[in-house]
């Protein structure tokens, strides 16, 4: 499923909303999550999962082609952990 299909399904379930509004609602939700992570906040959605930011320490990497050592600066990466309910549903469907 891609974003446009998600919007399509939501629009079908909510015929009283304009498709344009459904698009804005979907964007608002994902933007809100991204903005929270950009601030370093966590987003916890019970039953679904939690988004958080993990810190990766600076390290010395290596250019795989030349073998040359290159410094890799410290960085933050977005991380998602599936919630218990979703994990269980994914494993009991068949």
């Amino acid at each position: 499923m891609i974003k446009s299909e998600l919007i399509q399904r939501l629009a079908e379930d909510n015929p009283h909303l304009f498709q344009r509004d459904v698009e804005r609602i979907v964007s608002t939700v994902f933007d809100e999550i991204t903005n929270a992570l950009a601030r370093g906040d966590r987003v916890e959605l019970r039953g679904f999962g939690a988004f958080s930011v993990k810190k990766r320490d600076a390290r010395t990497g290596r250019n795989p082609r030349t073998g040359e050592a290159v410094p890799v600066p410290e960085k933050s990466v977005p991380f998602f952990k599936a919630g218990k309910e979703l994990r269980e549903r994914m494993n009991t469907s068949d």
């Binding site: 939700v29 929270a36 601030r39 906040d41 966590r42 959605l45």
Partner: peptide, 9 residues
């Protein structure tokens, strides 16, 4: 270190 939930969304 804040945590957002469904209600914030």
């Amino acid at each position: 270190g804040n945590t957002l939930t469904r209600s914030d969304l």
